[in-house]
């Protein structure tokens, strides 16, 4: 019996955006329809913005739209010092579903996964096992994990082990 599931999400377009947030806000609103996310936050449905650091965002879109979005960003930010780069191939995304997602992740990250400390909708860049990864809680029982593609297989096995162990504990209880 297994009520926690793990799958590799379909490829998505990712654009790394660096620059002064004041100058990024306008073009990002036009492209995603959302205001810039608060620190450690995410904004937007479909096309989304993830907060990466005080001067970096990750823009998510359909893989086919990356070229068009990059062109629009380049045009809108031509006068600003900024960086917009297609990093769609750099990372893989895993989707975790099921009750106990927080327990499973807490086994492999130093990040505090308690409901009061990690809110639904938050994005936290942290460490999973031995590698860097980002955790995005998309619901009470759903999360996305972003990691570099080069360590994708490692993270997949790591997550599978954590989920299996969390499942076993739930069954035992």
């Amino acid at each position: 019996m297994s009520d926690l599931s793990l799958e590799r999400a379909a490829p998505r377009g990712m654009i790394a955006l660096r620059g002064d947030f004041d100058s990024l806000a306008g073009p990002c609103r036009e492209i995603t329809g959302a205001d810039l996310p608060a620190p450690l936050g995410a904004a937007g449905e479909g096309r989304a913005l993830l907060w990466m650091s005080p001067d970096e965002l990750l823009l998510l879109c359909d893989p086919g739209d990356v070229g068009e979005v990059l062109a629009r960003l380049g045009e809108a930010l031509a006068a600003q010092h900024h960086l917009a780069s297609d990093v769609s191939d750099a990372r893989v995304v895993f989707t975790l579903r099921g009750p106990g997602v927080r327990d499973a992740l807490a086994r492999i990250t130093p990040c505090d996964m308690r409901p009061g400390r990690f809110h639904v909708g938050q994005v936290r860049r942290t460490r999973l096992g031995q590698v860097a990864a980002a955790i995005r809680l998309t619901g009470d029982a759903a999360a996305e994990v972003y990691c570099f593609r080069s360590v994708g297989d490692y993270v997949e096995r790591l997550l599978a082990t954590a989920l299996e162990s969390a499942n076993r504990e739930r069954v035992a209880l």
Partner: peptide, 12 residues
């Protein structure tokens, strides 16, 4: 202080 996260020593 840049992102407000209480980071573990192993994240630093």
């Amino acid at each position: 202080p840049a992102c407000g996260v209480a980071a573990d020593e192993t994240e630093l």
